[in-house]
Design a protein around this nucleic acid. Sequence first.
DNA 1: ACCTGAACACCGTTCAAGT
DNA 2: ACCTGAACACCGTTCAAGT
Lengths: 219, 219
Amino acid sequence: MAGVRTRRSAGRPSQRVLTQENITAAALEVITSRGYEGFTMSSLAARLQVAPSALYNHASSKAEVLRWIQDHLMAEVDTACFAELDWPDAVRTWARSYREVFARHTPLIAVIAVLQVSGAPRTLAMYEAVTEGFLRAGWNQARIIPAIVALESFIFGSAFDAVAPTDIFDTGSLASESPLFTAAVAAAPGRESGKAAEQAFETGLDALIHGFAGTPSGN
Amino acid sequence: MAGVRTRRSAGRPSQRVLTQENITAAALEVITSRGYEGFTMSSLAARLQVAPSALYNHASSKAEVLRWIQDHLMAEVDTACFAELDWPDAVRTWARSYREVFARHTPLIAVIAVLQVSGAPRTLAMYEAVTEGFLRAGWNQARIIPAIVALESFIFGSAFDAVAPTDIFDTGSLASESPLFTAAVAAAPGRESGKAAEQAFETGLDALIHGFAGTPSGN
DNA sequence: ACCTGAACACCGTTCAAGT
DNA sequence: ACCTGAACACCGTTCAAGT
């Protein structure tokens, strides 16, 4: 064919604006400042200073952008702990950071639960690191996935709980119809200090970790 | 003032159509047949044979209708088990039915997590029955709520997992970059039989139940 | 008291037309 | 190759007008 031509302005690399990374970063900025209700294709486009329709040259749908965000956030989950701590403490550290990241992004949980790992490299890297940690702790290969999935289910559910109003258990005018529950709520630790969700999370996490350890045939 | 008048046609009780119960039942019919994507104020109104705007004389918003549905479904969760079985089996039965009900209604989980029990009588009744079951089993009052919340978090997360595609863990072209995870997935029980989610749920439920039992100061 | 129909202020997405 | 602007087919919700 004809001689190779330099494309674009030859000098500095042409600065593409609508890359996956840029769109994801802009999306996170919108979500941080205006929440998920304020995160629309319009608000995302505005932040990138393009027309909404321009986004569709790079993402097939809003759902795809959400998947990019999800995978991006997965890199923030601490997995280094598995190389530094023993299994119970490593799981605790991993689970806490996992919950913390997604408590701020609960609308993504419905996305994650359905997401194919093959399209989410950082999510896959997270699973690989956790699996490695379990194996190093002597876990039987066949029991690892159910344990991770169970922990993950607990983490996702706890993420919702973490951002729930603190007064959801106030029985109000129906207190007399639920005396036992009302009393239990009043007696629960972390009440009024706003740490009830943390208490429940740590309680469940402890139970899962001890429960896995004390399971019939060991780990 | 003037003499009391009988209102409406005096004979048979005027059959009100847009009651909370009727709206809730119609909403569930729409959701069952067309899913949550197909559940709109328009589709709900169509099933009730009224204009969409008529709904707003009875419900303040779509979110309120969702809260009605959530509370309605809570009555389907099995709590009778606490009067019939010992604590571990009762918790297992309760948790299984709770997960089963909401696996078909995962979009409601975001609603539940934020819902005030004072506005949800059946939800409150469920908590009361569970609390009673824990007390009867000898649980310390102060430890009940964190345990219930932890179990609930696990149940909600597992509900998402229950309806996830079975192939989410297929690593595809990235298998070589995640050899340990890929091998663990291949070795996991329930694979190909489509029962992986059930395996993970039962594994986690067992761990939680045993973990609670084996917790420092007993229950 | 409660319904209808029109309207409002949005959504996500598509697509012809441009460069 | 990638952007714009207009348009489409929806949403949930409001409200004046009716009965």
